[in-house]
Amino acid sequence: MADAVSFPPRAGAPKERWLHRNRRAIAPWMFLAPGVLFFLVYVIFPIFQSFEISLYKWDGLGEARYIGLRNYEKLFSDRAFETSLWNNLKWLVLYLLAVPAGLFIAIFLNQTVTGIRLYKSLFFFPFVISQVVVGLVFTWFYDPTFGLLNTIIGWFGAGPLNVLGDPAFVTYGIIAAGLWPQTAYCMILYLTGLNAVDPEQVEAGRLDGARGWRMLWHVILPQLRPATFIAFVVTIIGALRSFDLISIMTDGGPFGSSRVLSFYMFEKALSEYGFRMGYGAAIAVVLFLIMLGFIAYFLWSMYRDERGA
């Protein structure tokens, strides 16, 4: 694009001419320099530093001691690490329920009755609230003595259920809390997507006798692909980043049964019983490698689209 326009040569002192001639090659770097520098120092370099730190035994204060891959060896026999990894998997799978749930609500709300705009905003509401507050709200919601959940199931003669105090339920309880804002996010993505659906194709589909599910599957969903892609990206990233809710609702408990890698890493690295930065970094590296698989896939999809465009 930019190179297609030929640049009219101008007379001047040689030095000025060089700058002038190359200004289109130099300009982008001037614009990029501050942002790239910041990003390298605070994001890119730290990734590599974490890899290095994971090879040391280090309390964050004294001398770091090189121990090779010993931190990783320890991970294999660490039951808490195993629990965290399993819980991460649960998060990843169950969190994705936010995508169809969001689509469902979006279809429900995609109407033009009076006041629908306010309804859409209010349905979206949970996403704007910080996860810390969502965590508190749901902690009280689940409370075994006065929580709304137990009040309600009490009407049916069930309970009381101590969701956050029971290792069998705790992770699912926290995921449910996380699904609340995440579904709202997916909903808004799909609402915007539905807005852009081509009405002519819908009409054509109707003429061909497509209704309900068939219409959704064959006509609507293909047009919602960009929304679906973003919904998957943000939901997967969100699932692997889950930290706030766990920290607020259970602090990893009971008996460490609701930990995930991101939380376990934090707990080890900044533990009250002495910092274990090297071990923490090793956990972070594992989490990073899991995420890297997804990131690579996202980038590949984006690359394909770029080439296609």
């Binding site: 694009m1 982008p28 990003f39 990734i47 530093q49 730190i53 980043r241 690295a269 956990i283």
Partner: peptide
Amino acid sequence: YRFRANLWLFFMFVAGNFVPFQILMVP
């Protein structure tokens, strides 16, 4: 602008945006 590193720099920003916070925490 079109230059060779363009897409790579762009992908650096995108990828960095997705990394887990914990890999950055200690450094």
